[in-house]
Design a protein around this nucleic acid. Structure first.
Lengths: 142, 142
DNA sequence: CCCTTTCGGTTCATGTATGAAGTATAGCGC
DNA sequence: GCGCTATACTTCATACATGAACCGAAAGGG
């Protein structure tokens, strides 16, 4: 009867593990001054061909627009992206990757993949597949 | 060839699912003005017999002390806990559950368990067990 | 064409988390 | 008992996330 609080496969187990894994990866990204949030934004831009209106960036990162305003502020301060006027819509602003931003994206992606391989390397291929399936099942439309 | 970015059982899958599940539970707790952070603190106090020095609370919640200072500030503003001087150490302050805090803890715990059952109800018992095992394996000493 | 609505971004208030620095007290060695 | 170090908490700066309120610009109806 060793059940003191945290249930076996419960909420806290999931959240704790996610936090621990995230912290692991972030600590490595820290070496090049990136966070996962920043890297995700850089990757979204790179995947979209170097630039996106801020609202679409918010869409891709699945977060609210005010978050993007701040995140891009920080990325701009880091010199990794720049805001440019949107030629097709005078309301809009484009976030554009700078040269440094492209490099940071490449480096950060490499580091992230290494860290990820490291963490998930504890799992067999079957286990990794099972994990993916479980995540799918828990989060409607992930 | 539908692999556009997110790898099958990767980091983002885990983090996204954890976030989604957390948001699900938090949205229900919101009905009684609690967050998971606040509930976790209340539960830690309840489990410890109604009161704890702030530092120990930080230990139990696995976070830094400055976070507890602020969290207890908010709980105090909500009237759920009170700070009391520690009779054994003039440096210390005890966080003590108020009557309202005890009630909020009971209600919040019930809501959290319902929400949790709801979310994890999508899994069979075997799947839940497998999830627990995977989380264990990913997070050293969770 | 103007008016209203809608859309894109920013700003502000707030919650949660971290880490560095500061203050007060405790406790130890001598 | 003095002084040094370690501990308990707070404060401040920062990062990341949300939602509400706001403004300038686009777009549609009359």
């Amino acid at each position: 009867m060793n059940r003191k609080g945290t249930s076996p496969a419960g909420l806290f187990s999931l959240l704790h593990t996610a936090n621990a894994v995230q912290a692991q990866v972030e600590s490595r990204l820290d070496a090049i001054g990136l966070s996962l949030a920043k890297l995700a934004a850089l990757r979204a831009l790179a995947d979209a061909g170097e630039s996106l209106p801020l609202g679409q960036l918010a869409g891709r990162l699945a977060c609210v627009k005010s978050n993007i305003t701040q995140l891009v502020d920080r990325l701009e301060a880091d010199g990794l992206v720049a805001r440019q006027p949107d030629p097709h819509d005078r309301r809009g602003r484009l976030a554009v990757l700078t040269a440094a931003g492209k490099k940071a994206c490449r480096d950060g992606t490499r580091i992230q993949q290494e860290a990820e391989a490291n963490v998930f390397g504890a799992l067999t291929a079957d286990e990794a597949a099972a994990l993916g399936a479980l995540m799918q099942k828990l989060a409607p439309r992930a």
